[in-house]
């Protein structure tokens, strides 16, 4: 479904990593991945990298919990749910913070400064933690 009227692309990507091959080949895929990685390491500001590392950490913790559940079973189901949802919810909130502090999305979030975004993030996270701890009793 092709989008009709979208916000015009505001990609800050430089054209240095030009799309090379028209045919999809594993060498191209690997090249693209490498390009992406090097661009990421060079271009992204430190705060965003902090965010991303936190998100990766959350994914790891979440996957660990899920695997544990698959192996051992989900006996106190509310414990599993609250543990897993804590990671999922925190991940989602952090992703939202990342979106909101991304300068490319300035037009979308006119009314929200970065500080406001961070305050919202803290507010949401506190509520999330409260519910998780209450649920696990």
């Amino acid at each position: 479904m092709a989008p009709k009227s979208r916000v015009p692309e505001k990609s800050s990507v430089s054209t240095s990593s030009a799309p090379k091959a028209k045919k999809a080949g594993s060498a191209d895929a690997q090249q693209i991945v490498q390009d992406v990685w090097s661009k990421y390491v060079n271009k992204t500001p430190q705060r965003v990298k902090l965010l991303d590392s936190f998100m990766v950490f959350l994914i790891v913790v979440g996957v660990l919990q899920f695997v544990y559940c698959l192996i051992v079973g989900n006996f106190p189901f509310n414990a599993f749910l609250s543990g897993f949802s804590a990671t999922v919810g925190q991940f989602v909130l952090t992703a939202s913070l990342r979106i909101q502090t991304n300068p490319e999305n300035k037009a979308e979030f006119e009314s929200i400064s970065h500080e406001r975004a961070f305050a919202d993030f803290v507010f949401g996270s506190l509520i999330l933690h409260f519910f998780c701890i209450n649920f696990i009793n």
């Binding site: 009314s111 975004a117 919202d120 993030f121 507010f123 949401g124």
Partner: peptide
């Protein structure tokens, strides 16, 4: 409308 986490929460 705002895309804010605060309102979502």
């Amino acid at each position: 409308k705002n895309g804010s986490m605060f309102w979502g929460a």
